[in-house]
Simulated assay, not measured.
Amino acid sequence: MTAQVHRDEMRQDDDRAIIERSRRDPEAFAELYDRHAPAIHRYLARRLGRDLADDLLAETFLQAFGKRHRYDLDRADALPWLYGFATRLVGRHRRGEARFWRAVARTGADPAAGSADEGVADRVAAQSSRRDLAGALARLNRGQRDVLLLIASGDLTPAEIGAALGIATGTVHSRLSRARARMREALGGIDPLDFREVQFHG
């Protein structure tokens, strides 16, 4: 089952119906926020830390609200569309993102991940993995990092990522291939997507 099929099955009313309704009744857009804000916030926090994520979450949905009349109603799932706004906002904070990943690489402490319930041994192992992963992520160019983190954090398909970023699916595949190759080299042959539970979904 694909991620999109699963997401669609979880909903009584698909996103396009909400967006279409919001064109007549702007308050209906709040339902889209309630549905997708947690996923978008996690993604932003993964890339910039929680403090900036709070601000950019609001801006993501404000921009989406302003563009709702342009939404392609052939698309039942608006999550890739929302990730597109969020990713473009991250792009305005490239230096902040690089600092964030370097800080994680230095300390192993990711402010966007971890839990008080996590045991000491688990935290130490996770911090070691995060250092390696964060250092490698900091060395990717923005396009490669966007695609890799949308695949890992957003659980999106290459076609959905292409739609979110306004690039061809072939470009997504090419960037992902280069990103994974660079990451495997930096991580001693380990595929970066094997770190999802440690870093991307923590």
Rank of each mutant, 00 (worst) to 15 (best):
R178S: 14
R131M: 03
R178V: 13
L148F: 08
N141W: 01
R130V: 00
R178F: 07
N141E: 07
L133C: 12
G170H: 15
G135R: 01
W101D: 10
R178P: 08
E118A: 02
T157S: 15
G135T: 01
A181S: 15
L150Y: 05
R106A: 14
G170I: 10
I151P: 03
L176F: 15
E160A: 10
L165A: 09
A136H: 05
T171P: 10
R139P: 03
V147R: 07
I167Q: 09
A125S: 07
A103H: 10
L156K: 04
G154A: 13
D110W: 00
A181V: 13
A116F: 06
N141H: 05
M183W: 00
R139D: 13
A121P: 05
R106Y: 08
D110P: 00
R102L: 03
A126P: 01
A103V: 09
Q144N: 13
I151M: 13
R145C: 08
A116L: 10
A168S: 13
T157I: 02
G166E: 08
A164L: 01
R106S: 12
L149G: 13
I167T: 11
A116R: 06
R123V: 01
R175I: 02
A159R: 10
R178K: 14
A112E: 06
R184A: 06
D117T: 12
A105I: 02
R106K: 10
T157H: 14
T169W: 05
A164H: 07
L137F: 13
L156P: 02
A163S: 14
G166L: 02
A121G: 10
R102Q: 04
R180H: 10
L176A: 15
A164T: 03
A159Y: 04
S129N: 13
R131S: 02
I151G: 04
V172S: 05
A138W: 06
Q127G: 10
R139I: 02
R180G: 06
S177F: 12
G154L: 04
V120N: 00
S153Y: 12
R175V: 04
P158C: 01
V104L: 12
A152I: 09
G162S: 07
A138H: 06
A179L: 09
N141R: 06
A109M: 03
W101P: 02
G135M: 04
A181K: 15
A121K: 11
D122C: 03
D117A: 14
S115P: 11
E160C: 04
G154E: 11
V104W: 08
V147E: 07
M183C: 06
S177E: 14
D146M: 02
G114L: 00
A136D: 11
G166R: 03
A112Y: 05
S115W: 11
S153H: 11
D110S: 04
W101A: 08
S153P: 09
R145D: 11
R102Y: 00
G143H: 08
V104Y: 07
T157V: 06
D146H: 01
L156I: 04
G108A: 01
W101I: 04
R131E: 04
S177W: 09
A125D: 09
L165I: 07
S129M: 13
G108S: 01
P111F: 12
E160F: 00
A113S: 06
A126W: 03
H173K: 14
M183G: 11
A163V: 10
